[in-house]
Design a protein around this nucleic acid. Structure first.
Length: 481
RNA sequence: CGGGAUGUAGCGCAGCCUGGUAGCGCACCUGCUUGGGGUGCAGGUGGUCCCGGGUUCAAAUCCCGGCAUCCCGACCA
């Protein structure tokens, strides 16, 4: 009997964080493993989360002036190879197609690991005049990167993402665009996912292959490791050079546009899961939850199968739906209420609504919050109104709590010993001075596993280098996912 | 790509040492029971024992080869 119970439970977070994560994504019905290593199957419940994220992100991308298009999956080898740093960065993780229609291809085709090559080469045909600029295009696509180690959502061989690719007349405009999208990502992450992030610039060793400058948002996971959740690159004129994008500018001179690219992926779902889950499973913020409320009908003491409660429950469901709340009524009669509670908690539904004979008698119902199990009794007539407010509260509370956790896990250190101590202990974000030397960065990674996640924006805050004691500036370290 | 482990029902495993009818729990199906925090009882369905070869009257079990997966170290949104 003990054994039975254990088989239904998940590994406690504190005991083994990564096992907890795997248990949750599988048991919460988010993903399944497929026949190809590293290529997960996103199940309907997990995909519904992605759809909510996608819809909102798409809106934000359009509101900042961009339009959607779609470019091919296959990239000819020669095209990919035109930008030197880019190809060096990506070819080790490319999947190649060498046979088509039963015959060896004259030129191998890369399955896109990212689309700069194919998009920029297309832009070369499209841009002739300064009047053609800016080009502000986004695409929703899948990409493939043959990573050695994979984990559902966090690092998968194939993943879904959006990638924006833009061209601008001036460096300043490109930089402005790069930062604009970084801000879109920051806002999205905090407003939709309730996942607080730090943002800033990447060091040379961490920047995108072929970029001039890379910026990123970084979230902190429950095990004290950082997750890069979105990137925005100022590509300079590298790709215009490589792919021959040229136009006549306002002075009738030949000019090369400045380009940017930026992306967020299904990886954010992994961050979402790790930001809010607990030992009972997933906790989803209301804005991305497939179901914001689940109604669990409580059967009468004795008698028929829920017929005493279901009509009222269906009525309530229709009422909540009409109010724009995503609500699910759990009519399964092979499970008892207790089982259903645990089941929906595992799936992270923000609010459970219990409706039983006692409630119907009093013309009320019971609302229970997923994150803290706080219970309240509300009149049936006022349920929709109360729920709308409650969902907003939960969304905000999740963000506030996550912020508090990040704050508690951020340490400002002044000595390397202290640095090592924090890394050995609780990890998290470490703010420390750095002299700008890549060798120091490499040494710290070697010795502590921490890398420089971000160089904060704005004027440098002076701080002596944590390793050498030389003059330096404050940067943010963490062990990365 | 180095070091360690594991492949037996959808999942988690036992059996292997010492060869002889393929088992247990969960899940699933049927019936009754129960029902406001994972009900209980009874009956039942489901197998290429990873693949290939060898030894043997006989292989999940012993031997050889392969493949796959997982964990730990170098690369990565």
């Amino acid at each position: 009997m003990e054994q039975d119970r254990v088989s239904k439970e998940i590994t406690p977070k504190a005991k083994d964080y990564s096992q907890w994560y795997l248990d949750v994504v599988l048991k919460a019905d988010m993903v399944d493993y497929g026949p190809v290593r590293g290529c997960m199957i996103i199940k309907p419940y997990g995909y519904a989360v992605w759809e909510h994220m996608q819809r909102d992100m798409d809106r934000r991308i359009k509101e900042t002036g961009h339009v959607n298009a779609y470019f091919p999956l296959f990239i000819p080898k020669s095209l990919l190879e035109r930008e030197k740093e880019h190809v060096e960065g990506f070819s080790p993780e490319c999947a190649w197609v060498t046979i088509g229609g039963g015959a060896e291809l004259e030129e191998p085709l890369a399955v896109r690991p990212t689309s700069e090559a194919i998009i920029c080469s297309t832009y070369a045909k499209w841009v002739r005049s300064w009047r053609d600029l800016p080009v502000l295009i986004n695409q929703w696509a899948n990409v493939v990167r043959w990573e050695k180690v994979t984990r559902p959502f966090l690092r998968t061989t194939e993943f879904l993402w959006q990638e924006g690719h833009t061209l601008h007349e001036t460096e300043a405009e490109a930089e402005e665009e790069t930062l604009r999208m970084l801000e879109v990502y920051r806002a999205f992450s905090e407003e939709m996912l309730a996942m607080p992030v730090l943002y800033g610039r990447k060091t040379e060793s961490e920047k995108f292959a072929g970029a001039l400058r890379t910026y990123a948002i970084e979230a902190l996971m429950g095990d004290g490791r950082a997750l890069q959740a979105g990137t925005s690159h100022n590509l300079g004129q590298h790709f215009s050079d490589a792919y021959g994008i040229e136009y006549l500018d306002r002075q009738q001179q030949r000019a090369k546009p400045w380009s940017t690219s930026w992306g967020t992926s299904t990886r954010m779902i992994g961050g979402l899961i790790m930001s809010h889950g607990d030992d009972s499973g997933l906790i989803l913020p209301p804005k991305v939850a497939p179901y914001q409320v689940v109604i669990v009908p409580i059967p009468p003491k004795k008698g028929d199968v829920q017929e005493a409660v279901l009509p009222k429950a269906r009525e309530l469901q229709a009422m909540l739906r009409a109010a724009g709340i995503r609500v699910h009524l759990d009519e399964r009669d092979q499970f008892q209420p207790g089982y259903k509670y645990a089941d929906w908690e595992m799936r992270g539904v923000p609010v459970r609504l219990e409706l039983g004979p006692k409630d119907i008698e009093k013309d009320s119902c019971v609302l229970v919050r997923r994150e803290n199990r706080a219970k309240e009794f509300v009149p049936l007539a006022g349920t929709a109104t109360r729920l709308a407010a409650l969902l907003d509260t939960i969304q905000q509370d999740l963000l506030d709590e996550a912020r508090a956790r990040v704050k508690a896990s951020t340490t400002r250190v002044s000595s390397y010993d202290e640095f090592k101590q924090v890394m050995a202990d609780k990890r998290g974000f470490i703010v420390a001075g750095w002299n700008g030397d890549p060798k120091v960065e490499a040494r710290i990674k070697e010795e502590t596993k921490a890398t420089i996640r971000l160089i904060p924006m704005g004027d440098p805050v002076e701080a002596p280098c944590v390793v050498t004691g030389e003059k330096g500036r404050e940067v943010v370290f963490a062990q990365a996912y």
